[in-house]
């Protein structure tokens, strides 16, 4: 093989470096294109409705009314239901896998939990429509009405479809995220913290509760926010089970609509400019919210990776 001359070698080096540099810039450019495109696309809706877009409580394309409050409501409530179910379960999984499970159990069970994340959203939706929704309609909703029916949240017709089903399916989908990140966080807690508590005569649970979880609390919060970000942006499974009716109702039995699901439903059929622009603007709101949540979550998780001040990690 002939050695390249020093000159051509330098040239090759800078070309290579330049190419990778361009690719990296492209990544930043891409996010900027996304932002610009969303802002440009929502201009028409913004000049038309201004802030009324967020406060308006009627979404009715046929009559040109585009108030996104019902979508925001549906997004928030379905995500909160998801968190309510997923956070305790995920913490249980993380504690089990990081602190309790015998070693031969850890790897296969972690793999199974990760498998939950590998299943496509649309398959969750399919399962939701044919398995979960009938279960919710025939068992869960009647049960909730019998036991907690005096609360306004558990009243009305049993559709199966609706806010409750959406919340449950979202919970299943964000469990892998929250549990995997929380598990990493717990594994990053130094053993000296566990032993300090155990040596005082604490039980394993007291050790977890008083030493391990507090040490990792900001990272766990980060994991939860990461899960929230996923829940808010999740589209297909929610679209398929939430019932797609933009309304605000206290009952979780009612049909609802989220920002992501209305875009999936109406975008390709929106022939009216204003309708299209309103959907893009809803997308912009979604983009900004998930962006902020993700940034916040990353910062929190990073903080645990670095130990709190004054503590030496081993």
């Amino acid at each position: 093989m002939q050695m390249p001359s020093p000159k051509s070698r330098r040239w090759g080096d800078s070309l290579f470096r330049g190419l990778t540099f361009l690719a990296a810039l492209g990544m930043i450019g891409l996010v900027m294109v996304i932002a610009v495109q969303l802002i440009r696309g929502s201009q028409l809706a913004f000049t038309h409705f201004g802030l009324g877009f967020v406060t308006g409580s009627r979404w009715d394309p046929v009559h040109g009314a585009f108030g996104s409050l019902p979508l925001v409501y549906g997004t928030i409530v379905s995500s909160l239901i998801a968190l309510l179910i997923a956070v305790p379960l995920s913490l249980g999984i993380a504690i089990y896998l990081a602190e309790l499970a015998p070693h031969w159990v850890r790897t296969p069970v972690s793999f199974l939990v990760e498998l939950l994340a590998a299943i496509p959203s649309v398959v969750y939706g399919l399962w939701g429509v044919f398995v979960l929704v009938p279960l919710v309609r025939t068992a869960l909703e009647p049960f909730l009405q019998r036991t907690l029916g005096w609360l306004p949240f558990f009243q009305g017709t049993y559709y199966g479809f609706g806010m409750l089903a959406a919340g449950i399916i979202l919970a299943i989908m964000i469990i892998p995220t929250i549990s995997a990140v929380s598990r990493e966080v717990l594994l990053a807690v130094p053993n000296s913290q566990r032993e300090a508590m155990l040596a005082l005569g604490a039980t394993r649970w007291e050790t977890i509760k008083m030493a391990v979880l507090p040490y990792g609390r900001s990272g766990i919060l980060g994991a939860v926010i990461l899960g929230l970000g996923r829940a808010i942006g999740e589209t297909m499974a929610v679209t398929m089970v939430i019932g797609n009716r933009p309304q605000i109702s206290p009952s979780v039995f009612e049909l609802a609509q989220t920002i992501a699901s209305i875009i999936a439903n109406e975008f390709s059929e929106a022939f009216d400019e204003l309708h299209l622009s309103a959907l893009v603007m809803a997308g912009l709101v979604l983009f900004v919210v998930t962006l902020l949540l993700n940034i916040l979550a990353r910062l929190l998780v990073w903080r645990v990776a670095r130990a709190p001040e004054g503590v030496t990690r081993e």
């Binding site: 997308g283 983009f287 990353r298």
Partner: peptide, 21 residues
């Protein structure tokens, strides 16, 4: 950071943007 954040962007947003361009 952009990379980390991009993994969190809802995929439907990507759909809207590619449609618009």
């Amino acid at each position: 950071f952009t990379c980390d954040v991009m993994t969190g962007i809802p995929s439907i947003i990507v759909g809207i943007v590619v449609y618009g361009t």
